Simulated assay, not measured.
Amino acid sequence: MAGFRIGRGRDNRTQQQQPQAPPPHGQQPWPPQAGGGHPGGHPGGGHPGGHHPQDPYGEPQYYGDPYQQQHQGAPYQDPYANNPGHTQVFSTNDPYGQGATYQAGSAPAPPVGPRLHWKQLLSGVVLRPGQTFLQMRDYPVWGPALTVTFLYGLLAIFGLDKPREETINATLSTAIPFVLTTAVAFVIGSMMLGAVTHTLARQFGGTGAWQPTVGLSMLIMAITDTPRLVFALFLGGENSLVQLIGWATWLGAAALFTTMVSKSHDLPWPKALGASAIQLIALLSIIKLGTI
């Protein structure tokens, strides 16, 4: 056993000491020798005279001059960028790339102006509708909308001849719940119609929020019909003057609805008018004409 081990060690030592065959003529062993130089070359690993190192197959390797393009005035481009195993180089000046716009997760545009006081809001709907709707497109207006709509609903029933007679002839215990129920129903109905207008506006490509759209639509419904309601309380809903005022205020409501949807959703006026069509038809049928 001892001799066998000695024999194995002797054979292995003999194989390790066998000289290797010299490389073919004109080729140099790779990798280079310790010290950074090549046999027969210059010490220190330099390559004087512009010579390039050779690979194991005898072909020269060209690494290129990374500063050559900069010396010529052109920006440096990494020849290995965007290749497998290499990292793409990005500019730190523009985080989204030239000509590109960041969309996903981008912050919304700031409001046009501060929130209007309820007095300024109510007067602005009539006197400055364009500026008011544009400034309030990012603010909910539930407080003024619910209050004004509920107060209007309390009186709306007296603008129709038959419901007014029934309410006046009824007892107080019967009339009060009927009036309150009508006001609540008008609030809920106006909210539903405003939601329909908002949904149609979004279908047409609008970008507005639903709370300002619904709230402003409720204000438009109540404010624009107030002149007709005032005359209808004394003259009745069938009076010719009341009917004329009703048609005129309905056209005014159409103009305000179109302006509001256009400003709130960034839509052209034909699409804004189309988004308000269902609410306008309901307003004409239920309140102006009293056919439903």
Rank of each mutant, 00 (worst) to 15 (best):
S276I: 00
A145W: 01
A100H: 15
G274A: 15
Q54L: 12
G189V: 04
T132D: 05
G36H: 05
P31W: 03
Y80A: 08
G85P: 07
M191L: 14
Q20D: 11
S190H: 08
H47P: 10
V184T: 09
M221L: 10
G143N: 14
L280K: 00
T132A: 02
Q28R: 12
N239G: 03
H71S: 08
P177Y: 07
P129Y: 02
S123P: 01
G99F: 09
R164S: 10
Y139K: 03
L273H: 03
G41D: 00
V196Q: 05
P227G: 06
L127I: 09
D266Y: 09
L134H: 13
L116W: 00
T226Y: 14
R128E: 15
M136T: 11
P95N: 09
Q54D: 08
S217D: 04
P48R: 05
L283P: 00
I168Q: 13
S91C: 11
P22C: 00
D11P: 02
G236Y: 06
P114F: 07
Q211D: 09
L172E: 10
F178H: 12
L172R: 07
H117K: 10
T259P: 02
H47I: 09
A170N: 07
S262I: 00
T197W: 06
Q103K: 13
P227Y: 06
P268R: 03
A175T: 01
P84F: 03
G37W: 13
T171R: 13
Q88M: 10
Q61C: 09
D266T: 02
T92N: 12
